[in-house]
Every structure is written in structure tokens, then in C-alpha cells.
């Protein structure tokens, strides 16, 4: 499936993706409601962005008590259904990457929805640290390796 593939080694921790994400989804710049996160441990020289990997074996989906999280069988995309979500945050606990977000006012969880195929974070990242790429969903362990690379390099 096509999803957002981070290349943390190219990231400069500018947080532009967070701004673009919240601007698209909330209509304003509000990083607290973003669906992509930049971690910046500048001292350690470690920074990059993370967002939903739409895992093949998605713990958020299997842990949701109200079946609010579903997968599109055609695209493989994992989606939170606002109407069914009760805001219990089980999915946030379950997510191995910490990339399930939460909307305080709506009291629902939210994850990357790929902006319907035109992801704004990728568009705004002129460092090419984010790529909208065709990736096999079961390859997320490989991507995990990639996320850990800069730590090993320093």
C-alpha cells in the first residue's frame, strides 16, 4: 500500500510537517492536534518524524473495544471511525510507535489519513525526509530499523 515513509536521516527537526498536518485537518496551526510527530533530541543528534504505518497486524485495531478502528480491505489503510470512537485511548496505549493522536475537543482518537492521497506533510517537507511511497505493510520492521539508524550512527 502507499503510505508515508519517513527518512529520519534527512530530517532537520523543523516541524513543518506538523504545521501542515494540523492546517489540513483542523484549518489552523495547532501541533497539539497533529497526526505526524517530530521528535527532536538535538543533544543526541537524533530527530525525525513518525506517523501511522497502517501496520498489517495493527494493535490499535485489535485493541479497540468498540470496533471503531477498521482497515480498508482495498487500500490497507487503517481508519478511526469518529462515530464509534468513545475516546478510551486504548489504541494510544496499544500503538507500538506512539503515533495515534487524540483530539481533545472532539474526544476521539485520530491517525494519519494520508490526506486522501495527497499528504500535506510530504508536500511541505523539502528535505525529502518524508516520502509517499508504495510499501508492503509487513515491512514495518524494516522501517523500524531505519528509524533507529541515526542513533547507531552517532
Amino acid at each position: 500500500m502507499k503510505m508515508i515513509l519517513p527518512h529520519p536521516e534527512k530530517c532537520v527537526a523543523c516541524h513543518l510537517c506538523e504545521g501542515a498536518c494540523s492546517f489540513k485537518h483542523e484549518g489552523s496551526f495547532v501541533p497539539a492536534k497533529t497526526r505526524i510527530w517530530v521528535y527532536d533530541f538535538v543533544d543526541e543528534g537524533i530527530y525525525g518524524a513518525v506517523t501511522c504505518f497502517h501496520c498489517k497486524d495493527a494493535p490499535c485495531l485489535s485493541n479497540c473495544p468498540t470496533y471503531a478502528i477498521t482497515r480498508d480491505p482495498a487500500t490497507g489503510q487503517v481508519t478511526v471511525n469518529d462515530d464509534k470512537c468513545i475516546g478510551c485511548k486504548m489504541c494510544m496505549v496499544a500503538c507500538p510507535f506512539g503515533v495515534m493522536g487524540f483530539h481533545m475537543e472532539k474526544n476521539v482518537a485520530h491517525n494519519c489519513d494520508l490526506c486522501g492521497g495527497d499528504p500535506q506533510c510530504v508536500k511541505v517537507c523539502i528535505y525529502d525526509a518524508l516520502e509517499y511511497a508504495e510499501v508492503e505493510p509487513n515491512e514495518w520492521m524494516l522501517r523500524l530499523d531505519e528509524v533507529e539508524k541515526p542513533a547507531a550512527a552517532t
Binding site: V12, C14, H15, L16, D43, G45, Y47, I126, Y127
Partner: peptide, 30 residues
Amino acid sequence: RRNKGCYSCPIGCARVTETKGPSKWQGRGE
């Protein structure tokens, strides 16, 4: 060590650096 950008920066001119080689001056920072 790496480039860094400030908030919303598409340029990324900041340098995250570390002293190199034998020297009495050792440290890291920006």
C-alpha cells in the same frame, strides 16, 4: 554531525557539531 532547522524552516542552516580529533578542547553542541 547533522543539519538542524528552527521551527518551520525550509533551509536548515544550523550545525549540530562535535569537536574532532585529539585536542584539549572537547565537547559537542550547536
